[in-house]
Design a protein around this nucleic acid. Sequence first.
DNA 1: TTACCAGCGTTTACGCTGTTAACGAAACAG
DNA 2: CTGTTTCGTTAACAGCGTAAACGCTGGTAA
Lengths: 192, 192
Amino acid sequence: MSDLKARISLTAQGLFLSEGVEGVTMRRIAEGVGVSATAIYRHFRDKEEILEEIIDAGLASLSSYLRPALEAKDPFQRLKGLIDAYLRFGLEQPRYFDLAFLVPGRVMHLPEELEHHSRATFKLAVQQVALCMEAGIFRKEDPIETTVYLWSTAHGLVMLQRMNRLGDDKEKFSRLYKTTIERAIRGLREKA
Amino acid sequence: MSDLKARISLTAQGLFLSEGVEGVTMRRIAEGVGVSATAIYRHFRDKEEILEEIIDAGLASLSSYLRPALEAKDPFQRLKGLIDAYLRFGLEQPRYFDLAFLVPGRVMHLPEELEHHSRATFKLAVQQVALCMEAGIFRKEDPIETTVYLWSTAHGLVMLQRMNRLGDDKEKFSRLYKTTIERAIRGLREKA
DNA sequence: TTACCAGCGTTTACGCTGTTAACGAAACAG
DNA sequence: CTGTTTCGTTAACAGCGTAAACGCTGGTAA
């Protein structure tokens, strides 16, 4: 009934997630809501703004994947949990991942708030890495560079899978990503 | 004058590379060539086919980055050269990289020939990895998984940079990617 | 030479897109 | 009761990818 804006969001989210960013038109969203196409413009500046809202939701979902990992006891478990969660997000929420990270060709410009949140999350990861170094689990080197390295590996792996460059056997990919995490971390370890 | 098809290709390539995939329209290409929009259809099935040609060119360019690396003497140098070339390609040909890898949301379906070429290149990398293992430089494990891991790291790093998640200081990124390669390889080494 | 025909570019037009403008009904403020 | 704001409507516009029909132009067959 009421709160048309929320209903537009919801319908748009459904369409974007089920059909990807192309093929979703203002008129189809409007039709789904049961309203005229131009009514949408009372609640959103333009199509881009709707898309941004969905991306926000995607990043929130990513956050909800990452959060539990931080509750582990030691920093090494937390870090492994973060990487694992990132990969699971890519596997289980491919559409969100696409929307958030497969920007159609232009540089993504996150709204201030999300930008901030994103950097905060990154910093959290850097912290775990630094702690691992202090604890003598990782060799001591630049924790930021190290974190970027881990992030790259995780992000790249999901990316290659999203581009179905790795075959479509989910089982196999699941194993692949376990061994990849291992390999990625191995090079950081302090020699015993 | 003649060979309109080539001129369309060239103009389209210029537009796609200078403005990215969006904002390039059939009418603008046609205008650039000095011909009516529908004339293009005598030479290309549709817009997608033009884009595919440009992507082909992009992958050819990637190939030209990778090829010299294979002329090094030992497999370890060849492998490092391959990774380095991949990263340089991402840095120096960002628009090609976007076109080839930032598929707007749908799974990329390469034409047969390119698919084959791409897999062949991957196999070549796997070979170097396997040789490194035989030579006792890398510890012996699944060379395919190992190659995917290296590829992921390189691809992810470029990806994050393309999404300007890593700042825009080219100098810094240049250093970052050197240390990332090192870190990625470190974990593969046979303990001395 | 004449008749034809295929190749290639043109103009016109269709259905789709995102978006703006003008309008009207309801809800609310003084 | 009146004036204004809110929120939806319909109509319309410019731009998109593309199809269809037309006409020129050069080469081949009779």
